[in-house]
Design a protein around this nucleic acid. Structure first.
Lengths: 136, 136, 136, 136
DNA sequence: GTGGTCTAGACCACA
DNA sequence: GTGGTCTAGACCACC
């Protein structure tokens, strides 16, 4: 059973936290294509949240193409992860990188510190999706 | 006059977008300590949003210590930017880096691509806040 | 249901009066950690003020750490009340004491009268937060 | 020449800070009945504030009866300080004491700490207006 | 049901 | 001129 960590005080909606963590598991390879996700009822019980919250998280992920929901069967990781248009991918990457850069600068972190933080985050996801490179 | 870019359909609250962009200008040095920000009414007029929306953005930034509001005078960039506790800084950096890493992986971007995106974002902020280093 | 007393002619903003009275109830133990506060709409209706005024009061208290707001659930007294840095606490105490002292002197109240007023105020808050001491 | 200490970042209006400090000097006896206050122009110059701000502070104090303004002559400490009705005095004292008590409790200060803070504040005003008492 | 955001516009307070 | 507060009411997001 996967482990989920919810923070009710963070201001981030619960269903959003769930989506992020499922995406995280998929990106890290802990959830592979075709794997079954926990049932809505069980997950709701374990996390002590309203089942409709899980429904919303699964629904959004299905909408994105990250998972597929089979009526009466359950939810499964999609066989092929969604491919965004090149332009949107670049834009999204740019936005996230900019946010990290701005906040790092504002909190007085040096550029190497910021880059190291990113390297560590990439490493913690494992190498499942990519061959090793000389850069990392 | 600074330029602001608002996206009403992004789901991100307008006042949040404003805060992010002002923080960006401060981090990049386009707004230096003591500089005056646009008046609430003028900015509201230029951006075609309600003045109370600007009030909220300025108020939150003042709360954070990024700017200082002087009644009857205007809003100004704070002389010393706020310093978060070391632990919270590291945690925030880690969270942002993790988000970037996960989304980069999921959209199929390679690790060097993600790191390059961050390097570019840091460079676009300029070197105003840091002495020259051998890293640059 | 808690009782709130608003004075529209005092010059003190309504949202400020609300914050003060909620802080008072928390300090006195009438509102304990985890207790639910009245919903924004209900409180607005009871006090005959605009809901956004309550929103502002609750938002500021949440910012201070006195209460916690859970989207879709309601507002609750925080489990652990915020701890200010020692230096700021002393300075704040000094400022409040000085204000009381100056005004007491100016209105011709004797020093024992002022001290008695403070003793009564402390007693009216009850002993909920402190073990019995020989001082009381 | 009296010394005034203004804090533009405190959120307290400048004219209010001025009023408080003049009241303080009167309560402490540094300004006695009939003493002249600094001229509006000079004080504005020394404090680097707009003269209308001083005008407002002096005007409010004159309205309260703390000072008297003689056209063409200047501002002077009133011969007899204003006496509030007994009921209002008690109420005001109670409100200030309550605020001190609530904030002291909330910041974790003990009751003796709060009372000590008040004793120190009263002592710092000196004994000019009152005979020594066995309580202090 | 809950809280969050935004609008349009009024009126007040400060410098 | 500046910012601060409040209203009345709409629409959205969360649970």
């Amino acid at each position: 059973m996967l482990h989920f960590q919810l923070n009710v005080h963070s201001g981030v909606p619960v269903y959003r936290q769930l989506m992020d963590q499922i995406r995280h598991y998929v990106a890290a390879g802990a959830l592979a294509a075709g794997d079954a996700l926990p049932s809505i009822r069980e997950l709701a019980r374990v996390l002590a949240v309203n089942p409709t919250t899980i429904v919303k998280a699964y629904g959004e992920l299905a909408h994105e193409g990250v998972i597929v929901i089979r009526h009466g069967r359950g939810a499964f990781v999609a066989e092929s992860q969604p491919a965004w248009p090149q332009a949107r991918r670049r834009e999204r990457l740019r936005a996230l990188a900019s946010q990290l850069a701005v906040e790092a600068r504002q909190m007085g972190a040096s550029d190497p510190e910021a880059l190291d933080a990113l390297r560590r985050a990439l490493e913690s996801l494992g190498r499942s999706n990519h061959p090793p490179t000389s850069d990392s």
